[in-house]
């Protein structure tokens, strides 16, 4: 009973939220060139990095901390997978007898 009420309220909130997002999505439409100041800064200063590919210049030079954090995320995930792999293989031999 309680769960049912919760679900209805949640659905109503979700519908309102979707409508709001669509209204903002209309305004985000691309009539003009998007003139964000950050992009302007990158377009003016790309020559310092020496790269022609702007995505590369932003990714590895202006936003080096971002890329480094992303690589740390990937590294931690891979380390977790290696540890889990060793953990899974080990109880497979003993787990049949024990539990």
């Amino acid at each position: 009973m309680k769960e049912n009420v919760f679900k209805r309220v949640f659905t109503a909130l979700l519908v309102v939220f979707i409508c709001l997002m669509f209204l903002t999505g209309m305004n985000l439409g691309h009539e003009d060139k998007s003139d964000s100041p950050l992009t302007e800064f990158y377009l003016e200063n790309y020559e310092e990095t020496g790269a022609i590919n702007l995505v590369e210049a932003i990714l590895f030079d202006f936003r080096g901390y971002d890329t480094f954090g992303e690589l740390l995320v990937l590294y931690i995930a891979i380390a977790g997978i290696i540890i889990l792999g060793k953990e899974i293989i080990k109880p497979k031999d003993e787990g049949g007898e024990g539990s």
């Binding site: 990095t49 790269a51 590369e56 590895f60 030079d61 890329t67 690589l71 990937l74």
Partner: peptide, 16 residues
């Protein structure tokens, strides 16, 4: 530095 970082990041993503 960009080419160096590219190669290192490429090897790392490849290994992962």
């Amino acid at each position: 530095s960009l080419v160096f970082l590219d190669i290192v990041v490429g090897i790392k993503v490849f290994a992962g």
